[in-house]
Nucleic acid binder design. Sequence first.
DNA 1: AGAATAACCTGCGTGC
DNA 2: TGCACGCAGGTTATTC
Length: 279
Amino acid sequence: MPELPEVEVVSRGVSEAFAGRRLTRVVRRCERLRWPVPAGLEAQILAGPVLRQVLRRGKYLLLGFDAGTLLLHLGMSGSLLHLPAGAPPQKHDHLDLVFGDRLLRLHDPRRFGAALWCSDDVTTTMATHPLLVHLGVEPFSAAFTARHLYEASRERTVAVKQFILSGKAVIGVGNIYCSEALFRARIHPARMAGSLTLPACRRLVQEIRQTLADAISAGGSSLRDFVDSRGEGGYFQLQHRVYGRAGQPCPVCATPIRVLKQQGRSTFFCPKCQRRANH
DNA sequence: AGAATAACCTGCGTGC
DNA sequence: TGCACGCAGGTTATTC
């Protein structure tokens, strides 16, 4: 479910609904997600229970409480539901953060997500936590430039699709938006990363930003639906141009969209619009 | 060091 | 109806 745009939408939703509010109860139903959920989590958060700020780094969410920072990741299948306090838990509901009459519930069937506690504040956690400190450049930061992508990709023989997913040049771009951005930039996904020209890097940087921004806007338009109940409302209305559309006509040239497997993951592209060579 | 692979999980759709 | 299989939005650890 969550790539950067979805996490951003969730982050904004949580901030709007809960920033400044006092946590009243924590219920942990799951011992391990990707890593063990810390045993003393409840007591640690409740030692300083006001939620001060909510930040995103890559696909991580940071919930800054007075006592420290709750680090969340939604993995492949995670969602954060905003429900009335006392809503009966369903299967795969792993963690409740109760703020008086409302609660935030972490739901994650595949359990690739994470919930970790760090006693530092959000800023320090962002800068020093082992899972965050080595993360690369944010796509909306000033550091994500064509020149940066160009330099980072030199000598790389790996396919550009995999290079973007690797997080070496930019973070937060997942499998869906990587296909979408490469399509918009008219770059073949199997092209060697090191063969990208500076103009190609310029297009890719631009289109990664634009694709993510469009997705955030689409999610934001039904943010309330997303956060309130069904959990999937926000981004499915996003118009995918190639992702999941194998065999359907390219929206630009009507050539059938193709799918290929790269490192076990599906990539969708238009064989006519996205050429391997030059520019 | 870069690149490929395995691993962690559950659920859903498909085809036999 | 049951079962095997492949597939799914992510990331880390291991191996070559």
